[in-house]
Design a protein around this nucleic acid. Structure first.
Length: 721
RNA sequence: GCCGCUGUGGCGAAAUGGCAGACGCAGGGGACUUAAAAUCCCCAGAUCGUAAGAUCGUGCGGGUUCGAGUCCCGCCAGCGGCACCA
């Protein structure tokens, strides 16, 4: 039995086994078969168990019978394992009663197990909120007070977690509370929110429900507890508090805060050999194996033991890596075996063992490739110690960088981007694997990733999640063929904030494609463009790139000095794009570039220096187009060098200073006029200019000005009444 | 149930507490064209008005403030993740 709240042991009024729990099978077996007792046991060797199931050792039959007789109990066989008889040493009378009750319940138990087995995982976990269960007919003994508590089976207890068996404390666990209400099981409060002095928090009450209402069979399987000595609490309380109703001759937890009560009861249980403290780690079991070819094969082989039962074995390190065979056919076999099963030469090993034919999912590789990238050519190790520590370890950072600032470049992977749906689990596993590697001493940090950004899901054009069944899937390949990689990339960034969920819109791609066309025409001569398009129609495919390169830049591009207005437009764009990239606001960075291009299109003379810098801003968003135009510009001016190696431009704030400002004027908080003032205007000048504005006069007529609020360079608000 | 995100025009969206709707899509009008496409220019939140203009307007209800899409309190709705983990 497993619990995280040992302090509530006095409040355990029943216990629950998972329906699949092996003990249930043993109980059913017990009900069906008349057990052999004492002299009728056939095996020569006997493992003796005390009534709690604890093994007292294996001995010869005669010795075991003597052992039992000496203590006035019987030896009851409950099973045989490897020619050794498993026997309880306890009074047969009580045991017979149990068999009687089990036999009464056996039909119900089997029916319930069948019902549960028929349920899908979905039904059992996500949908099934209603509690179901069946009493087994058996009782357990609560070690702290000797109470008999009924053992139920219910599917709200999972066989796969803990021990698949729980003590139910309905007063302090929501699930137990619901179950107890459903089946009228007793509820005893043992934790109080408020501190209660030990002397007034009552003893385990006489005539408590578990003593009074044990005969569940006679009550039709239901414990009709109707109040009395212990009034059930009005609501379930799962928080910490102070022990009440938790005293027996053996020990008392009354008045103790939860943390102390836990310590005390655990110490007591351990001293009696009734339990041990343990730490339980949880890791979600994400279906790991696939019946596909494309994935890493498992380094696992299957063998048969003496009884012909299959068991699996890990291959030794010397057998790694396990490389997949290259079959002719990558489809599953007719009888549903994975594709690898086709490669019988590969599957069957000389010693008669057989390889696992399922493969790992793709994320098995992606959980650690950030490490492999650090040293991808290394043939002897997945990453060398030197490379790992250079890239991943904080101590390798340049001493010029202060180690205390959290804003400076970090060690490890700076940024992990992924949608929640995928990244929650992938990230969880990647971190888990990294921690395993850390514990094994292969990496120098326990955490690989510095920052997480969840990008938003792209929905279908109908605003619903893309799925084959809805028929709203957009294939990026089609977009790529129609509009090119730059347009696809640009549109994905233009749609909205990175982390927002947003619907796809193919017409929107056409929009940014149009923008890229405008950029192209900003640089390229219109006549040359027309000539190029006509030539393209008849050109051989192989000749097309050369044709593209031969298109000259437009005559309006000149090596002339930029005007102040042009510099202002450029530097405003640099500022916005630089800051937005830093904050991953790609959509507004792109709109800033659109604004720049819209303006630049109107320039009669386009200074090459300005357009060249603009291309650098565009490059991260539309790398192909930017690089192409960069080459054209440089053929004409500078020696050609890839755009990727040129330092990011800086902006000059002095170029962005405005001479005059448009200042909104409000009357009583409502916008009534906009005035033009010199950028350097003092507050008093703003006030008088505002009051003098023609458009605000009607709103001041017949009123007195009470107050004027001036926000320098921003706004004037006249309060009048 | 727990956790997270999001509510602003017909649509995607923008807005250090200070002119709500930048930029773009769809739409309307015009130019070019024999015509269409492409391209270029203009209009475009709603209501009333011929117009100038006025009023209303950022999911809902309160609050703070000269001023709230933005801050505070309380709701509602949608989306996503996790989920009888004792």
């Amino acid at each position: 039995m497993f619990t995280t709240r040992p302090d509530t042991l006095f409040g355990a009024t029943y216990m629950v086994l998972a329906p699949e729990h092996p003990l249930i099978s043993s109980l059913l077996e017990l009900a069906r078969k008349q057990p052999r007792i004492n002299g009728r046991i056939r095996s020569a060797r006997v493992e003796v168990l005390d009534p709690s199931g604890k093994s007292l050792g294996i001995m010869d039959l005669s010795e075991a019978i003597g052992f039992a007789r000496q203590r006035g109990v019987d030896l009851i066989e409950v099973g045989v394992k490897q020619n050794v008889s498993i026997c309880f040493a306890q009074d047969y009378g009580g045991f017979r009663d149990l068999r009687v009750r089990l036999n009464q319940q056996v039909g119900a138990i089997q029916k319930y197990r069948d019902l549960v087995a028929a349920k899908s995982d979905l039904e059992r976990t996500e949908l099934a909120k209603e509690k179901t269960g069946v009493w087994t007919g058996a009782y357990a003994t609560n070690p702290v007070n000797g109470e008999k508590i009924p053992i139920w089976i219910a599917d709200y207890v999972l066989a796969s977690y803990g021990t698949g068996a729980i003590m139910a404390v309905p007063a302090h666990d929501e699930r137990d509370w619901e179950f107890a209400k459903e089946f009228y099981l007793p509820i005893v409060e043992v934790v109080s929110k408020e501190s209660v002095p030990p002397d007034v928090s009552g003893d385990w009450p006489a005539g408590s429900p578990s003593q009074r209402s044990v005969d569940l069979v006679s009550a039709g399987g239901r414990n009709l507890y109707a109040g009395g000595d212990v009034r059930p609490p009005e609501a379930c309380y799962v928080g910490d508090g102070f022990g009440i109703n938790s005293t027996s001759g053996a020990l008392s937890l009354n008045g103790l805060p939860t943390a102390e009560a836990k310590e005390k009861i655990v110490a007591w249980l351990e001293s009696k050999g009734l339990g041990t403290k343990t730490i339980n780690y949880k890791l979600r079991d994400w279906l790991f194996s696939r019946q596909r070819y494309w994935g890493e094969p498992f380094p696992i082989v299957w063998k048969e033991d003496a009884n012909g039962d299959l068991f699996h074995e890990a291959l030794p390190e010397s057998a790694l890596p396990v490389l997949p065979p290259a079959p002719d056919d990558y489809t599953p076999t007719a009888d549903g075996q994975p594709p690898l099963a086709r490669a019988t030469d590969w599957v069957e090993l000389p010693d008669g063992s057989v390889r696992e034919t399922n493969t790992m999912p793709q994320w098995a590789g992606s959980c650690w490739y950030y490490l492999r990238y650090l040293d991808s050519a290394n043939a002897s190790s997945f990453v060398s110690t030197a490379a790992e520590s250079y890239w991943m370890s904080p101590s390798s950072l340049s001493p010029l960088l202060s180690p205390v600032s959290p804003f400076l470049p970090s060690s490890g992977v700076d940024l992990y981007v992924g949608g929640t749906e995928h990244a929650v689990l992938h990230l969880l596993y990647a971190r888990f694997w990294h921690k395993v590697l850390f514990d094994l001493g292969h990496v120098s940090t326990p955490e690989p990733f510095f920052k997480l950004v969840n990008q938003g899901l792209i929905l279908g054009e109908d605003g619903q999640k893309m799925s084959k069944s809805r028929g709203n899937v957009v294939n990026p390949d089609d977009i790529l063929n129609e509009y090119g990689a730059d347009a696809l990339r640009l549109f994905e960034m233009f749609m909205g904030p990175l982390s927002d969920v947003k619907p796809w819109n193919t017409q929107g791609v056409a929009g940014v494609y149009k923008f890229l066309g405008r950029v192209w025409r900003l640089f390229v001569d219109e006549a040359a463009e027309t000539a190029f398009e006509q030539a393209l129609v008849t050109a051989e495919v192989a000749a097309q790139p050369a044709l593209l390169q031969s298109v000259p830049v437009g005559a309006s591009l000149q090596e002339s000095p930029a005007t102040p207005a042009q510099l202002k437009a450029l530097h405003a764009c640099i500022k916005k794009v630089t800051e937005d990239l830093e904050g991953m606001r790609f959509n507004t960075a792109i709109s800033a570039m659109m604004i720049f291009v819209n303006e630049a299109m109107t320039w009669g003379v386009k200074p090459v220096s300005v357009l060249r810098t603009f291309l650098q801003l565009l490059a991260p968003f539309a790398p192909h187009l930017a690089e192409e135009l960069w080459e054209k510009l440089n053929v004409r001016s500078l020696p050609a060098e890839s755009l990727s190696y040129v330092a990011w431009p800086a902006y000059d704030p002095s170029l962005l200073v405005e001479d005059t400002l448009e200042i909104p004027v409000q009357v009583n908080g409502k916008l009534r006029a906009v005035i033009q003032v010199p950028a350097a205007a003092a507050n008093a000048e703003l006030e008088s200019a505002a009051l003098a504005a023609e458009k605000i006069q009607p709103f001041l007529a017949g009123k007195t000005v009470k107050k004027i609020i001036v926000v320098p360079r921003k706004l004037v608000n006249v309060i009048a009444a």
